[in-house]
Computed example of a mutant assay.
Amino acid sequence: MASQHDTVHELLRLRVNGVNLKIAAVRRTGRLAPVVFLHGLGGTKEDYTDVVLRPAFAGRPVLAFDAPGCGASECADLAAVDIAFLVDTTRAVLDDLGTSRFHLVGHSMGGVAGLLLAHRLPGRVLSFVNIQGNLTPQDCFLSRPAITGHRDFFAAFTDAVRRAPHYANELYAASLPHKVRRGAAHGILASMVELSDHGELMSKFLALPCPRMFLYGEEYAALPYLPGLDAYGVELAEIPHSGHFPMYSNPVAMWRHIAEFHQRVESVHSRDVRSHA
Rank of each mutant, 00 (worst) to 15 (best):
M1A: 12
T7W: 09
H9C: 09
E10F: 10
E10D: 06
L14S: 04
R15H: 12
V19P: 13
N20C: 14
R28N: 07
L32H: 09
L38P: 13
L41Q: 01
A56C: 12
A58T: 02
G59F: 12
G59Y: 11
L63G: 11
A64E: 01
F65Q: 11
D66R: 11
P68F: 15
C75S: 07
A76W: 13
D77S: 15
D82G: 12
D82H: 04
A84R: 15
F85H: 07
L86R: 11
D96H: 15
D96A: 13
L97V: 00
L104I: 04
V105E: 09
G106K: 00
H107G: 05
G110E: 01
R120I: 03
L121I: 01
V125T: 02
L126A: 08
V129Q: 03
V129W: 04
I131H: 05
G133Q: 04
N134L: 04
L135G: 01
Q138T: 02
D139S: 14
A146K: 10
D152H: 14
F153M: 11
F153L: 06
A155V: 03
F157D: 06
D159S: 10
A160P: 03
V161T: 06
P165H: 14
P165I: 14
L171V: 11
Y172R: 07
Y172I: 06
S175C: 08
L176H: 12
P177G: 10
A184E: 13
L189M: 08
A190D: 13
A190I: 01
A190K: 02
E194G: 10
E200D: 14
M202E: 14
C210F: 08
L215N: 05
E218W: 08
L226T: 06
P227F: 05
D230R: 10
E235Q: 03
P240M: 01
P240Y: 00
S242K: 06
S242W: 14
M247F: 08
M247L: 14
Y248C: 04
P251D: 09
A253W: 05
H257L: 06
F261A: 07
Q263V: 00
Q263I: 00
R264P: 02
V268F: 13
V268R: 14
S270V: 06
S270L: 07
R274G: 01
S275R: 08
S275V: 00
A277T: 00
